[in-house]
Design a protein around this nucleic acid. Sequence first.
DNA 1: AATAAAGTTGTAATGATTACAAGTTATAAA
DNA 2: TTTATAACTTGTAATCATTACAACTTTATT
Lengths: 140, 140
Amino acid sequence: MEEIKTNFEDITSRLKNNNIRLSHQRLKVLEFLHRNRIHPTVEQIYHGLIDEIPTLSKTTIYNTLNALTEAGLVKILNIEENEARYDIETDEHGHFKCKVCGNIYDFKVNMDSLEIKGLDGFKILTKDMYFSGICAKCVE
Amino acid sequence: MEEIKTNFEDITSRLKNNNIRLSHQRLKVLEFLHRNRIHPTVEQIYHGLIDEIPTLSKTTIYNTLNALTEAGLVKILNIEENEARYDIETDEHGHFKCKVCGNIYDFKVNMDSLEIKGLDGFKILTKDMYFSGICAKCVE
DNA sequence: AATAAAGTTGTAATGATTACAAGTTATAAA
DNA sequence: TTTATAACTTGTAATCATTACAACTTTATT
């Protein structure tokens, strides 16, 4: 409960800092991402909300996701070749894509413990880790 | 010298195993990748070879890169949102994209030493690590 | 209430990648 | 050396995710 509250304060403050208004459409997109932890595509978000908001446009979803990404509330995953996916979980973690079922799984990983050679003097701002293979369900 | 020889044997055997012929165009693409370690786009490869092979088609480059990727001789990098990049270096390493100059740098990293939670029973086949930030040159 | 800034939406444009079909080249068998 | 078959190249057209744009609507501010 407390977690949700701080979370919400975090959201509203981040929105204010970026001059982003929490419109009806944007709230619904955020809710969808919170409820559906499947790293959905724009297409999936669109189909998940079109019944609730019949006038919804895909352009709005793109605008919303780009705005939320700039505000640091959403992360774009480029784990697929052709289609972006969106993640409401912004804490550091890796992503695994199953080549059989296509699902994308989160995994915990400590990226700070990595021994890296070749980036002396580089300023690292983002770290993304994409694995692929066969998930436990599909291995059976 | 010896390295190049084994490398070439590796190439020819891998091509044979995948029923891929080393045509003139494909050889030139491979040479370009070996000489230009910049993780080039299809566009860059095309412009780098069109003078030498005036009849060259981008479709051929796509076909070639897809074939070489299937044979394990080339790796596709999805580090950009909109355009694929291709890497002739198939040994395990990470990639860093500078947000200022746009260059993509390799870095050494031991991915086996990662402490991962959440992938028990998963069969991991590929591991990709994409960093972004500002490179040493652009930091100055 | 008036004004300006931000948001929504539909349509059109962009651009990377793939599909396809016709012609060309190389390999293997006879 | 011919023949047949499989692989390769190429140009054009199609696909499809994403962005650009313009008209309109909503929200915040004075």
